[in-house]
Design a protein around this nucleic acid. Structure first.
Lengths: 128, 128
DNA sequence: TTGTATGCAAAGCGTTTGCAGTGAT
DNA sequence: ATCACTGCAAACGCTTTGCATACAA
């Protein structure tokens, strides 16, 4: 039976209100403003619980520590800027990729990460 | 100035001879058969060095520890079996994905991981 | 009251680093 | 004889867990 604690609300709210996937440490810092004394262990325990409940999604980019975002977001992908390292949501999807798998392999899902230059870091020739 | 040690050869050979990307621990176990007494620290040091030299490539799948494979392999992707967790190379590629990025974002590269059921693990999971 | 959730600190796990000894050149 | 490389163990950063207490139900 799950209880609705001050800490759990603070953790969930921090992630829902963020505009991008957050690291556990970032969740801690934001949630502590609402729930002083909050410990990192509680953040990890709740992140895990909220993911299991289906409220959160884990964003695991290659070579990066896991980040967390609201699960309400539909199937989507991510774009990491090679200049500023920030991660953005990409709501487009290449669609069915089962044609890429070798014979005998069955594709059930996929993960895609795009790398490049984000809007803010400017095009190779344009400085906006 | 680099030296050609017994350990380094054993580590490189273990990876070149493997049919799939290996975890550092797997590299250790295989290389120890040729270089008894080999320590895990030496494996890590050489993996790093060989990646820097361009001989190896790091395979970083979401939520998985880094694996290593020969760099000679061209641009390709990976397939992870959701049953046995093993990782396989996929030499197909969806091609240009710049259409997926929002306006103002420039795609320079991409990473793709397929998930599903491998040849050895049999039929795909029942559709839910 | 009851038992889950919490905070703290210790433990785990994969990876890195300091150091003195080893061995390739 | 050099000096990069090695093995060992300690240190690290992130995450998990044990335990006594706090608090939602």
């Amino acid at each position: 039976m799950e209880r609705n604690t001050r800490q759990r609300s603070a953790i969930r709210d921090a992630i829902v209100q963020a505009a991008r996937p957050l690291l556990p440490q970032e969740v801690l810092e934001r949630a502590q403003q609402v729930a002083p004394g909050l410990g990192i262990a509680t953040v990890y325990r709740n992140l895990k619980a909220l993911v299991d409940e289906g409220q959160l999604r884990t964003v695991t980019l290659p070579g990066e520590n896991p980040r967390y975002e609201p699960a309400e977001h539909r199937h989507h992908h991510h774009f990491q800027c090679t200049r500023c390292q920030r991660v953005f949501d990409v709501h487009a999807c290449p669609g069915d990729l089962s044609r890429l798998a070798p014979p005998g392999f069955f594709v059930e899902d996929h993960d895609l990460t795009l790398y490049g230059c984000c809007r803010d870091c400017g095009a190779p020739a344009a400085a906006n």
